[in-house]
Design a binder for these strands. Structure first.
Lengths: 155, 155
DNA sequence: AACAATTGTTGCAATATGCAACAATTGCGT
DNA sequence: ACGCAATTGTTGCATATTGCAACAATTGTT
């Protein structure tokens, strides 16, 4: 197996184990996977723009807008106007949203903690170092098959 | 940062870069992300059962059934009966399906090759070794938040 | 032979999707 | 200051996808 295929396999494995192909509306805390990601991202940044969120999650801004609307109607998220710019919107977590975020963090962290536990002690730091290198490498890459519209129909 | 968070970050990064939250119907070769995964999995196994496919991709069998139906109607996939069992279905690729698979492999491999290229030469084998360890560790884990129905509504 | 378990397909209502069009606002060039 | 382009976010819209539940068909078990 080629070395890049090892990375690809990890990717496939994560997709499977994390149920990323699902669009379930109740994965954790009564919200979908995509909404979990939204909540986490909003929480980490303490306020985001809709565009920023769409970009980070690699979603269309219309999709993002509606997704946020869903979170607002659940009382998890707040859409606030910014004083110095009446065009953009500042998206923040409500108290309920923060609670949800904590819960999501717990569930997710638990999962990844178990993964680390399953790695032999003496190999753990090696894995961490490698993952940091990998992270940097991935960050340098463009988005894959996203906005480039590779719609070539097969002959 | 805790060591498990490094792995989690990689996961988030992949979700973002690979556009896994998208349910775009035309990511590559005119099929969606989920369908790309289906095609790849069917191709790798040279014939799968619907249930197997649903399990591997962590999707409901009804969803899987319809997704396969979509691939059949596009002429990419074949649903065949098995001689010794008239209940199960054997799903295989058509010639067009194989062509699509090759294309998908190319696009995906290209992406992961670039990631490896972005890793310093002397560190590459380290990363590969670590990824193999990580892969084994992830395989040992259960599915995350999938069928367990953690539908606890937040207070 | 009777009954349980498995496999895959639909009915169904709800939701999500992205593109395009749009209004509101801001920035830029002159 | 004025006009025009660019940005930001929201909707209309048609389509696609989701999972649960119910179902028929088949297979396994006792």
């Amino acid at each position: 197996m080629k070395n890049y295929q090892v990375v690809r396999d990890i990717s496939r494995l994560l997709v499977r184990k994390l149920g990323l192909l699902r669009k379930n509306d109740a994965v954790c805390c009564g919200v979908s996977v995509a909404q979990c990601y939204s909540l986490t991202e909003i929480g980490r940044r303490e306020g985001v723009t809709l565009n920023e969120l769409a970009e980070v999650l690699n979603l269309d801004k219309s999709t993002m807008s509606r997704s946020v609307e869903g979170l607002v109607s659940r009382g998890l998220v707040l859409r606030q106007e910014i004083a110095d710019n009446r065009r953009t919107v500042n998206i923040t977590l409500t108290e309920q949203g923060k609670t949800a975020c904590v819960k999501i963090e717990q569930v997710t962290d638990e999962y990844f903690k178990n993964i680390m536990k399953a790695i032999p002690d003496e190999k753990r730091s090696l894995v961490v170092e490698a993952m940091q290198l990998l992270g940097k490498a991935i960050e340098k890459q463009k988005l894959c098959c996203s906005n480039e519209k590779i719609n070539e129909v097969i002959l």
